Simulated scan of single mutants.
Amino acid sequence: MMEYEGILPVMKPAGFTSHDVVAKIRGILKMKRIGHTGTLDPQVTGVLPLCLGRATRMVEYLQELPKEYEATLVLGIATDTEDLTGTVTERLEEGVQVNREQVLRVLERFHGTISQIPPMYSALKQDGKRLYELAREGITVERKAREVTIHELELTGLKLEQTYPEISLRVLCSKGTYIRTLCVDIGQALGVPASMSVLKRTVSAGISAESCLTFEEITRLAADGTLQDYLIPVDKAVHHLSAVQVSDEKAKAALQGQRLSPSAVHPVPERQQIIRLYDSGGRFLGIYKREADSGAIAPVKVFAQNE
């Protein structure tokens, strides 16, 4: 049985948790070592990169990259989950009236670093228990606000003439951003309750929706033996890390986990910088870091093998 290695870009359908997707792909590929790069709620569709084989060691670096979403929020309705899958807790029976200029002014306030209070229906742990588990028991606890970054926030659609207006957005944001909470906070800034109605993740770990494969496509490609051609190589998946080359005489030492002098690599990285290390032939050796105190190049995750 083939053991795959690399990043598999999956198009997650609605109705599946991220763990469901991992279980599905494990069944298709007949391999256990698979990890996902960030949770998506069951009703959310879109990009879910899966790390196969030794690529699971790269999850932490992939999660650091910004994510892009297409979202729609409804004004005038609030729920306990902050989206329309939840129980309605408030509804403005008379409807809502807003105009385009009001919406654009409010959206301007959400650019850059903002503070969010994570929703109760989330997978965050507090005192050893998931928040959504507490929420299902009817328990609400105080959550600490955390800072996230909204790199881009673009208005893509407006339906203002209906009783409960809809606002559609494209959001490019840092990890840890709750789009449901962003939708609620936008409504609050407009002076009305709001809930997220639709969410699709369009970019994750630098992978776009156009590059993703459906379950059916993955099944077919695995059956005909060509799936490996569609996997993103481990080093290409972390292209945001600087590429550095090690001298031929020190490549073997690097693979043995030895710390190297900065003079053994080119270009010399900054102290504390995480890098991708290659030999003179372009072979990816692994993830290394220049230490803050000694300045040495130290291994973090070695991938290649000594020949």
Rank of each mutant, 00 (worst) to 15 (best):
T113Y: 09
G112V: 11
I150D: 02
R91I: 14
P118H: 08
Q126T: 08
E133H: 11
V141I: 13
E147Y: 09
T140Y: 05
L92A: 07
I117Q: 03
R91F: 04
G138W: 08
E142Q: 13
L104Y: 04
G138T: 08
T149E: 12
I150P: 00
E154M: 06
E90H: 12
K129M: 05
T140L: 09
E137I: 02
Y121Q: 01
K129E: 15
E108C: 07
V106K: 03
E154V: 15
L107I: 11
A123R: 05
G112Q: 09
V141W: 06
R109F: 06
R105T: 15
L104H: 08
E94T: 14
G138V: 08
T89F: 13
R143Q: 05
E137M: 10
K144C: 03
A145E: 14
E137F: 04
L107Y: 07
P119C: 09
E90K: 15
G112M: 12
E94C: 06
F110G: 01
R105V: 08
V103N: 00
E152I: 04
E94Q: 15
R136K: 14
K129D: 00
E142T: 14
T149Y: 03
R91A: 12
T113V: 14
T113N: 13
I117A: 02
K144F: 07
T149A: 08
R130P: 07
E147A: 10
Q116C: 12
N99I: 11
